[in-house]
């Protein structure tokens, strides 16, 4: 049963990107590609050869693989409702964030390995923005730890909804907001980053992988899809009532993931990307909101 979270994660990672694509093309009134388009892309990438830059070396070769394995390792820590995660221990969300940071470290230095100034620029932005996003998650989980008295994903999410406290509603709203916003930062979506922009100067994540091709690029795409699904799973865990039976849980899970994809797709269709120097403000707002959640909990609990 502990495998459930991991399996559902993989399944939703398979579907969300295509779903977002569909939403975007419907919103734009285009016919658009089908829901399976991301998988056709990946299949093509797997079949293709690779081109390496003369400048690059070992780091560029191993970075995409490291990034993907970091994300898979992080996914093992996420529970699915009350069914628990593959591995769970006190403070596992610290490990979760730090192993994601390891993957990011490698994708940043892999961009620098190409010696391209464009990729250096992307690397610098990625490092800055993800650094600013880091505290929000910790503050949110500190607040959750106060509410539940647990310090692991499984512990927090299993205690959270059965604590019988009505104030939890506020907390949940803020939590969903914080998780959703950080997911936009982490998975490089509008308004922080626009994966579909045409000018390298305005990209963050896309510009870091300009030189990747073939197999490596496929790994990078898969990693991004998984990351997206992970945030959906976290949001699902936060809002699902603990005592529901499996069928309902799965229904809620599907709904949450679909809603997540729809929101992300709609934001992407109707909103412009932030000006680059507005991004720090946008990201710090997430931490500020997490602080509010924390203060509310403090006032209510202490």
């Amino acid at each position: 049963m502990r495998l459930l979270g991991f399996l559902f994660l993989i399944v939703s990672a398979l579907l969300i990107p295509g779903f977002i694509l569909r939403i975007k093309s419907i919103a734009a009134g285009r016919k658009g590609p089908g829901i399976w388009q991301p998988y056709r892309d990946i299949a093509i990438l797997f079949a293709k050869g690779q081109v390496f830059s003369n400048t690059t070396g070992l780091i560029f070769q191993i970075a995409p693989a490291i990034n993907l394995s970091c994300i898979i390792a992080a996914a093992m820590l996420l529970p699915f409702g009350r069914y628990g995660s593959l591995i769970s221990f006190d403070g596992d969300f610290v490990y979760f964030l730090y192993i994601l940071a390891l993957g990011r470290f490698f994708s940043i230095i892999s961009a620098l390995d190409t010696g391209s100034s464009f990729e250096g620029m992307g690397a610098s932005r990625e490092a800055l923005f993800s650094m600013l996003a880091e505290p929000a998650f910790f503050i949110l989980f500190a607040a959750l730890a106060i509410v539940t008295g647990h310090t692991s994903f499984s512990g927090i999410f299993s205690e959270y909804t059965i604590s019988g406290d009505h104030n939890i509603l506020i907390m949940t709203l803020i939590g969903v907001f914080v998780l959703f916003q950080s997911s936009l930062v982490e998975t490089c979506r509008v308004p922080v980053d626009d994966p579909k922009t045409h000018l390298e100067l305005t990209m963050i994540h896309e510009v870091m992988i300009l030189d990747n091709s073939g197999f490596d690029k496929a790994l990078i795409h898969i990693a991004t899809y998984l990351k997206q699904a992970m945030y959906g799973l976290l949001i699902y865990n936060l809002i699902t009532p603990f005592k529901l039976n499996l069928v309902f849980q799965i229904i809620i899970f599907v709904l949450v993931q679909a809603l997540y994809a729809i929101t992300a797709g709609l934001i992407e269709s109707f909103r412009a990307r932030n000006k680059m120097n507005r991004n720090p403000k946008f990201i710090l707002t997430i931490s500020a909101v997490a602080w509010i959640a924390f203060v509310i909990i403090l006032i209510l609990k202490k």
Binding site: G49, Q50, N54, T114, S116, L210, D211
Partner: peptide, 15 residues
């Protein structure tokens, strides 16, 4: 995988 597909070396993409 890399054994079965063509692998090339080229300069960094300078846009």
């Amino acid at each position: 995988h890399l054994r079965n597909v063509p692998v090339k070396k080229e300069p960094t993409w300078g846009c």
